[in-house]
Design a protein around this nucleic acid. Structure first.
Length: 891
RNA sequence: AGGGAGUUAGCUCAGUUGGUAGAGCGCCACCCUUACAAGGUGGAUGUCGCAGGUUCGAAUCCUGUACUCCCUACCA
C-alpha cells in the first residue's frame, strides 16, 4: 500500500474522483427502470453568471438528497440547466460592448443577439464547471438551456395555447417601466427603497376665481399629466367645489375637481392631483371616473414633447425647473421633508416610472385557483410549513403578469402583425401569411418574454414536452423542489400554475424552502458590498466536502444563515480527522483477510469484545438518527449525528480501544477487531457520502472490502445493516459507558490535580456490587492503558486518607474511583475539587428533593418521572456522602 | 399599516410531542502519547429578551411588551 499523507489534500482527490464518476456515467437517471423514481430539477442559474454561496447551499442540499436517494435504491434524476436570464445577460454584454464604444442599437437586433450567443458560448460553461467543483451529481447529459430548441418550442406552444384560451392578452396598461433598461418589468422586479424627499404644496386656482385648492405632492413634475384634482366627498373644506374646474398651474389646461372616498383627508392638504398615466392609484381612479390619460414621459425617462419647455428634461431636472417656475409665479406654498418608499428597478437600480404602454399580459386569477387548491389540499406541501401561508396570501392578491420585455435577448413573442389588415397572427411556427387576410407581409412583435415565463415551464419543458416522452412518464411530477424563499412567487408559484395547466398535474409534491446566506453581519451577501465570498475559492482552500458540510450543518429549517469562516475551518479539520482515522484503520487492516459470506455467517457474537459490540450499537443509533432526520429534511441534524459518531465515538474511543488488539499477535481477537473495524469504517464512509462525497469515495476505494463505487453503494440503515447491527447490544453499550466514565474520572483527577501525564499512577476502583465488579475486572487493562495507570486494584476501598475520590453512579452501577495522592500533589487542590463537585451535587439534590416533597407533583406527574426522581435522589445522596467522607479524611 | 421570523454560553447557532440547559469556535491549564498539533486530555462559562398566565413542572404552550430582521401593500 502506498503511504498516505497525514494531511488530506482535497484538490487532487476531488478532480480525479469527479472525472471518474462522470466517465462511468454514475449520475445518469434511467428513463425506464424498475426502481422507484426520484427526481429534482435544478433551479437554473444564470448562464453567464458565476456560482455564489447561495447556489452552493441550494445545490448542496439537492446533491445530498440526490445522493442519499440514489444510494437508497431509487432511480434518480437530477436535471440540470441554465437560464438565459434576459436582462442580466443582455446588460453584461451591453457593458462589454460599451468598452469598445459600441451600442446595441448600432449593431441592430440580429447582430447583437449573435454577440450575446458568442458570449454565452464563451462563458456559459463557467458556472457548470463551478457546479462540478462542488461535486454536484447532476445528469449532465441532459443539461438544458432555456433557449434550447426544445425548450423554446414548449415556450411557444404554451404562449399560443394560453393566447387561444384568452389567458394571454395584449393591452395598454400602466406598467412598471425601467428607464434604465427601457423595458417593462414585472411587479416583482420592483424593489421599494426608502427615500427622503419633499412634499410640495402647490396652488391650483379655481376657474371662477373664487379661491384656490392646495395640492400636496411628492412628484410636482407629473403635474403636466394631471387630469383632475380629487377631494374626499365628505370633506367640509372642499366638498362644495366638486364639479368645478381648476387651472392647472404652468399650463393653459383646466381640470375638474372630483370627489372620491379613497382620498385621505388627513394627508397633506387633503387634496390630491390625479395623474392616471403615471401613478397606479390615479390610474385606477382615472378609469373609475373616466378621466383621460396623459402620458408625459419618453421611454428613457425624459419628458416627452407634450411638455412644452420641459420637453427633453429628465424627471429630476424637470422637477427642479418646475418647482422654481411655480415659486416664481407664487404658486408654491411650502415644502415639507417627507420620507416615502420609492420603487427601484431591481436590475438597473433606476427609479421605476409607472408608464402607460402596450404590453402582453397573462391573466393570473384563473390559473391561480387550481394552484391555490393543490396547496390547500396538501397535494403540494411546503417545508417548512409556514411558507404555505405566504404562498396562499400571494395567490389571493395576484395581479395580471406583464410578460413582455423590451429586450432583444430571450424568447421573442410569437405574434405577428399583418401590415395590411393590422390583425395579429399568433403561431407556434413562424407564419408565412396572415391568418386573417392571408397577406404575406407580416411583422413580428419586437418584444421578448420575461425570463420567468420559460422558467415556469422548466419541470416539463426540460423533459421533452410537448412530446410525450419516457422521461416525463418516469420523472414527472418531480419529487421535491429545493429553493430559497426569495423566488417563491417568481418561480415556484408559476411552475405550479403552468404544471397544472399543461400537464394536468403538479410539477412537484414537496417544496423545500431554505434560508438565504448572509455575511458575518447578517447582511445579504453582495458583490457590490464586497462581502460576497466566492465558493470556488473556498473549495480551492479547504475542499468541497468541508464547504458542503459547513453549509449543511448551519442550515436550520427555513432560516437565513450567516456564513461562518471559523466553522468552515472546523469542518476542514473534520475532513482531516476522517482522513487520518481512515489512514490508521487501513494500515491496521493491511493484513485483513476478507471473509467469505460463509465465514461471516459463522461469526459468533460471543467472539466480539465489549467495545466491538458497543461501537456497533452506537453505529445503529447513528444510522437510525440519520435516516430519521433526512426523512424530515432536517439536514443539519443528520450531519451533526454523523459528525458526533465519527469523531467522538469512532475516533475518540473505538480506535483507541482496539489499538492493543490490532498491534497484538494474529489471534482470533485481532481477527474479530479487524472485521468490526472494516465494517464500521465501511459504514462511516457510506454514511458520509451524501454530505462529503469526495473524501468518502476516495477512502471507499481503498477499503479491503468494496464493490464498484461508494456513490453506488447502499445507504446504511438499521434495515440494510440488520445482520451487522445484530452484533451490537445495549448491555455492552452500558458497560462501555461505565468504563468510559471511570477513565474520564481518573483523567479528571489527574488533570485537576496537575498530575503529569507521563507519570504512571495507581488507582483503586471500588465497586459496590457484583455487576460493577465484573465490568471493572473485565476492562481493567483498557482502563489502565487509557488512564495511564501502572497499577489498578479492583476491590473494596482500604483507606481513603490522602486520596482523591470520584463516585460514579451510572446504569445502576456504583463505582468509587480512588487515586492515592500521597507525595504526588498538594492535597488542598483535591479538597477544592471535591468541594466544587459536592456543591454542584448539593444544588441538584436540593432542587430534586423539593420537587419530590411536593404533594401535587407526586399526585400529578407520571409515575415514571416520579420513580426516576427517587432513583436520582438516592444516587445523588450516595455520591454526596462518599464525597463528604472523602473530604473529611483529607482535611 | 398588515403578515411572518428571531431574541439561549464571549461569538455562531442547536434544542419537534413541557420533566434537572447543548454543540462548534473562542478562552484557561497540561501534553510533540508512533492515525491526526487541522491533534489529545481536563476545565470555566447561561435568572434561555422582559412581564404575566396555564401547569405538579415552561427555553419549550398562551397573553402582553421591548428590540432586531424579513416579506407584502400603501401615504398623493
Amino acid at each position: 500500500m502506498t503511504k498516505l499523507s497525514d494531511r488530506y489534500s482535497p484538490q487532487e482527490v476531488e478532480k480525479r474522483i469527479y472525472a471518474w464518476w462522470t466517465e462511468n456515467n454514475y449520475f445518469s437517471g434511467a428513463d425506464k427502470s424498475t426502481l422507484p423514481p426520484f427526481s429534482i430539477i435544478l433551479p437554473p442559474p444564470n448562464v453567464t453568471g458565476s456560482l455564489h454561496l447561495g447556489h452552493a447551499l441550494d445545490h448542496t442540499i439537492q446533491d445530498v438528497l440526490v445522493r442519499w436517494k440514489r444510494m437508497s435504491g431509487f432511480n434518480v434524476l437530477w436535471l440540470p440547466g441554465t437560464d438565459h436570464a434576459g436582462i442580466a445577460t443582455q446588460s453584461v454584454v451591453e457593458k462589454d460592448l460599451k468598452k469598445k464604444n459600441l451600442f446595441r442599437t448600432q449593431l441592430g437586433r440580429d447582430q447583437f443577439v449573435e454577440k450575446v450567443w458568442e458570449w454565452k458560448n464563451q462563458y456559459g460553461d463557467h458556472i457548470v464547471e463551478q457546479m462540478k467543483r462542488l461535486g454536484e451529481s447532476c445528469d449532465w447529459n441532459r443539461l438544458c438551456f432555456t433557449l434550447d430548441e426544445g425548450v423554446s418550442k414548449a415556450v411557444r406552444k404554451v404562449f399560443v395555447s394560453l393566447y387561444e384560451k384568452g389567458q394571454i392578452y395584449r393591452g395598454k396598461k400602466l406598467i412598471n417601466w425601467s428607464p434604465g433598461l427601457e423595458s417593462a418589468i414585472s411587479d416583482l422586479e420592483v424593489e421599494y427603497i426608502e427615500v427622503k424627499g419633499q412634499l410640495y404644496y402647490i396652488k391650483y386656482p379655481l376657474e371662477d376665481g373664487s379661491g384656490e385648492l392646495t395640492v400636496a405632492t411628492t412628484r410636482p413634475e407629473t403635474l403636466l399629466g394631471d387630469v383632475a384634482v380629487a377631494v374626499h366627498p365628505e370633506d367640509e373644506r372642499y366638498a362644495s367645489w366638486i364639479g368645478k374646474n381648476v387651472h392647472l398651474p404652468l399650463t393653459q389646461r383646466k381640470i375638474p375637481v372630483i370627489g372620491d372616498e379613497s382620498v385621505d383627508r388627513e394627508f397633506g392638504s387633503g387634496v390630491v392631483k390625479i395623474t392616471p398615466a403615471h401613478d397606479f392609484n390615479d390610474y385606477n381612479l382615472g378609469l373609475k371616473h373616466q378621466l383621460p390619460q396623459i402620458n408625459i414621459l419618453n421611454k428613457n425617462g425624459t419628458l416627452n414633447d407634450s411638455c412644452g419647455v420641459y420637453t427633453g428634461l429628465s424627471v429630476v431636472e424637470a422637477r427642479k425647473r418646475l418647482v422654481s417656475d411655480l415659486e416664481q409665479q407664487n404658486l408654491l406654498i411650502k415644502t415639507e421633508p417627507h420620507t416615502h418608499q420609492v420603487g427601484h428597478c431591481s436590475r438597473s437600480g433606476w427609479v421605476v416610472e409607472p408608464l402607460l404602454s402596450e404590453q402582453w399580459f397573462v391573466r393570473m386569477k384563473e390559473l391561480a385557483g387550481p394552484a391555490q387548491r393543490v396547496v390547500e389540499s396538501g397535494t403540494i406541501t411546503f417545508e417548512p410549513e409556514s411558507w404555505t401561508k405566504t404562498y396562499l396570501h400571494w395567490m389571493e392578491i395576484i395581479q395580471d403578469w406583464c410578460i413582455s420585455r423590451q429586450l432583444w435577448w430571450g424568447h421573442r413573442i410569437p405574434a405577428w402583425t399583418c401590415l395590411k389588415c393590422l390583425k395579429l397572427t399568433i403561431a407556434e411556427e413562424d407564419p408565412k401569411r396572415c391568418q386573417h387576410c392571408a397577406h404575406e407581409e407580416l411583422q413580428q412583435d419586437e418584444d421578448v418574454l420575461d425570463t420567468w415565463f420559460s422558467s415556469a415551464l422548466w419541470p416539463f419543458s426540460t423533459m421533452g414536452w410537448p412530446e410525450e416522452t419516457e422521461t416525463q412518464k418516469t420523472f414527472y411530477p418531480t419529487s421535491v423542489l429545493v429553493t430559497g424563499h426569495d423566488i417563491i412567487f417568481f418561480w415556484v408559484a408559476r411552475m405550479i400554475m403552468m404544471g397544472l395547466e399543461f400537464k394536468k398535474d403538479v410539477p412537484f409534491r414537496k417544496v423545500y424552502i431554505h434560508g438565504l446566506i448572509r455575511d458575518a453581519n447578517g447582511k445579504k451577501m453582495s458583490k457590490s458590498s464586497g462581502t460576497a465570498l466566492d465558493p470556488v475559492k473556498l473549495i480551492d482552500e479547504v475542499g468541497a466536502d468541508a464547504l458542503r458540510f459547513t453549509l449543511i450543518s448551519q442550515l436550520a429549517a427555513g432560516r437565513d444563515l450567516k456564513f461562518s469562516l471559523p466553522r468552515l475551518e472546523g469542518y476542514r479539520n473534520f475532513m482531516n480527522k476522517i482522513w487520518n482515522a481512515a489512514r490508521f484503520s487501513l494500515q491496521a487492516l493491511n493484513d485483513f483477510k476478507v471473509m467469505t459470506p460463509e465465514e461471516e455467517a459463522q461469526l459468533n457474537k460471543n467472539n466480539l469484545s465489549t467495545h466491538d459490540k458497543w461501537i456497533l450499537f452506537k453505529l445503529g443509533v447513528c444510522e437510525k438518527e440519520v435516516e430519521f432526520y433526512l426523512n424530515q429534511f432536517r439536514f443539519s441534524e443528520s450531519a451533526q449525528s454523523i459528525y458526533e459518531f465519527v469523531w467522538h465515538q469512532f475516533c475518540d474511543w473505538y480506535l483507541e480501544l482496539i489499538k492493543p488488539s490490532l498491534q497484538g499477535p494474529q489471534n482470533s481477537e485481532r481477527v474479530m477487531s479487524q472485521w468490526v473495524l472494516a465494517q464500521v469504517l465501511n459504514r462511516v464512509v457510506r454514511l458520509l457520502h451524501p454530505f462529503a462525497p469526495f473524501i468518502s469515495e476516495e477512502i471507499y476505494q481503498m477499503l479491503p472490502v468494496k464493490s464498484k463505487a461508494c456513490i453506488l453503494e447502499v445507504y446504511p440503515t438499521v434495515r440494510t445493516d440488520r445482520s451487522l447491527l445484530a452484533f451490537g447490544d445495549e448491555a455492552s453499550a452500558q458497560t462501555m459507558d461505565i468504563v468510559v466514565a471511570v477513565i474520564t474520572a481518573i483523567r479528571n483527577i489527574r488533570g485537576e490535580n496537575r498530575i503529569k501525564p507521563g507519570l504512571k499512577i495507581t488507582v483503586r476502583l471500588s465497586p459496590s456490587d457484583d455487576k460493577s465488579q465484573k465490568i471493572l475486572g473485565a476492562n481493567k487493562a483498557i482502563i489502565m492503558r487509557l488512564a495511564g495507570l501502572d497499577h489498578c486494584e479492583v476491590g473494596p476501598a482500604a483507606s481513603l486518607s490522602k486520596c482523591a475520590l470520584s463516585p460514579i453512579r451510572l446504569h445502576s452501577s456504583a463505582v468509587d474511583v480512588i487515586v492515592p495522592l500521597e507525595g504526588l500533589v498538594d492535597l488542598k487542590i483535591e479538597v477544592q475539587r471535591i468541594h466544587k463537585n459536592l456543591e454542584k451535587l448539593k444544588r441538584d439534590f436540593v432542587t430534586l428533593e423539593q420537587r419530590l416533597q411536593d404533594k401535587s407533583f407526586l399526585k400529578q406527574a407520571p409515575e415514571e418521572v416520579v420513580r426516576q426522581g427517587h432513583e436520582q435522589l438516592i444516587t445523588l445522596k450516595s455520591q454526596m456522602s462518599t464525597l463528604e467522607e472523602a473530604a473529611r479524611r483529607l482535611s
